[in-house]
Simulated assay, not measured.
Amino acid sequence: MLLPNNATKIQIENTTVDFYEFEKDNITYLYFDTSLCGVPEPMINAMAGLKAINDTNKKLIMKNHQLPNGLFPKIDKVFDFEIQRLEEGDVLITFAYKKDSLAEVDFSNNKCLG
């Protein structure tokens, strides 16, 4: 994914990769790329990024080398996600906050079993 010209680098606590923010169609997107990272970095960065997505006007885009299957059961009561497979084999996952969710996510639970 090429970041748009209006993307700016931002600081998110407890991350190991760069995060960027941009706006499109009145939605604020946060983006990070862990496609070159090994376990547990994708999970750590995803949980830190998801913690910043606290309303329906924000979405998180994660680029990774594979599906983060250990992440989905931890967050699926609070976040929807769409998966896009890229030509080079990577995946883009776009996470969106579920408006009517009363569930909570333990964002400190950022360990991956493999």
Rank of each mutant, 00 (worst) to 15 (best):
M1W: 09
L2V: 02
L2S: 04
L3A: 07
A7F: 02
T8C: 03
T8W: 00
T8L: 06
K9T: 09
K9G: 02
K9Y: 02
Q11C: 06
I12E: 08
I12G: 06
E13R: 02
E13N: 04
N14I: 01
T15K: 03
T15P: 04
T15V: 14
T15Y: 07
F19W: 04
F19G: 01
F19P: 00
F19A: 09
E21D: 00
E23T: 06
K24D: 14
K24S: 14
D25E: 11
D25H: 05
D25G: 03
N26V: 08
N26S: 09
T28P: 01
L30I: 08
Y31Q: 00
F32A: 01
T34K: 01
S35M: 01
L36P: 00
L36V: 03
G38H: 07
V39P: 00
V39N: 02
P40F: 12
E41D: 03
E41F: 06
I44V: 10
I44M: 06
M47P: 00
M47W: 08
M47F: 10
M47C: 04
M47Q: 05
M47Y: 10
M47N: 01
G49E: 09
G49T: 12
L50W: 09
L50I: 12
I53M: 13
T56S: 10
T56A: 11
K59Y: 04
K59G: 10
K59T: 10
K59R: 13
K59L: 08
L60W: 10
I61V: 12
I61S: 07
I61M: 07
K63Y: 05
K63D: 07
N64E: 02
N64R: 01
Q66I: 14
L67R: 09
N69I: 14
N69F: 11
G70M: 08
L71T: 05
L71V: 12
L71F: 08
F72E: 06
P73F: 15
K74D: 00
K74C: 01
I75E: 02
I75R: 00
K77Y: 15
V78A: 14
V78R: 08
V78L: 13
F79K: 05
F81G: 03
F81M: 04
I83E: 10
Q84G: 08
L86K: 13
E87K: 13
E88Q: 12
G89D: 13
G89S: 06
G89L: 10
L92Q: 06
L92W: 01
I93F: 04
F95R: 10
A96K: 07
A96F: 03
K98G: 12
K98D: 15
K98A: 15
K99Q: 15
L102F: 05
A103L: 11
E104K: 14
V105P: 00
D106A: 15
D106M: 12
D106H: 14
S108I: 13
S108H: 09
N109E: 15
N109I: 14
N109L: 13
N110V: 07
N110A: 15
K111S: 15
C112M: 14
C112H: 13
C112A: 15
C112N: 10
L113E: 11
L113A: 15
G114Y: 05
